[in-house]
């Protein structure tokens, strides 16, 4: 055990302060310390993306970041993307287009997709497949995930246009 550090992070808009060993992995901080269990653990070597969260505007695999590194940063997880009365268009689209089966990869998948659409609101199928290649799904074969993201993009763009 090493000396505990003072950590300050903002998760889904809420400031969190606590003492933690620096080796505590961010994914465990979220899941076990803060009970934010949407992000999951799949591979632990940064290949599967089940633990994907957004940190200061970047899609990050939370299994490969120490909480000490994250101190001072703002983190968004699937729980921060929408709520039951106000779902993110991706959350509705994944249901509508059967973009999930066991659901284990889904929080990371949707969190990553939200960032992808932020950076590229009109992605081609190829861009979606390339932009989502850091997230592994064992159930769907991706075809309906691509469809879900395309549908969400269309909906978000239509909403954007309507607003303008």
């Amino acid at each position: 055990m090493s000396k505990k550090m003072h950590i300050q992070i903002n998760v889904n808009g809420k400031d969190q302060e606590f003492l933690a060993e620096p080796r505590e992995l961010l994914i465990y901080t979220l899941r076990e310390r803060l009970n934010i269990t949407g992000p999951h653990i799949g591979c632990e070597t940064s290949h599967c993306g089940a633990c994907t969260v957004t940190i200061d505007g970047k899609s990050v695999k939370a299994c490969t970041m120490f909480v000490a590194q994250a101190s001072g940063k703002s983190i968004t997880t699937i729980e921060g993307l929408g709520d039951p009365d106000n779902l993110h268009p991706l959350q509705s689209a994944f249901k509508e287009h059967h973009g999930l089966q066991c659901g284990y990869c889904t929080p990371g998948m949707i969190t990553r997709a939200s960032k992808l659409l932020e950076e590229n609101p009109n992605p081609t199928e190829e861009e979606i497949r390339f932009g989502m290649a850091g997230n592994i799904c064992r159930c769907t074969g991706y075809q309906n995930i691509v469809k879900s993201i395309q549908a969400a993009a269309a909906e978000m763009n239509a909403a954007q246009e309507a607003a303008e």
């Binding site: 899941r31 934010i36 269990t37 949407g38 992000p39 999951h40 653990i41 997880t77 699937i78 729980e79 929408g82 709520d83 039951p84 779902l87 991706l90 959350q91 509705s92 994944f94 249901k95 509508e96 059967h98 999930l100 659901g103 284990y104 889904t106 929080p107 949707i110």
Partner: peptide, 19 residues
Amino acid sequence: RKRVEDARFTQGKGNYVDD
């Protein structure tokens, strides 16, 4: 029929054993 399971999974509210 759309899946009834999806509401919880898409909102990060699944309940897996490690949760």
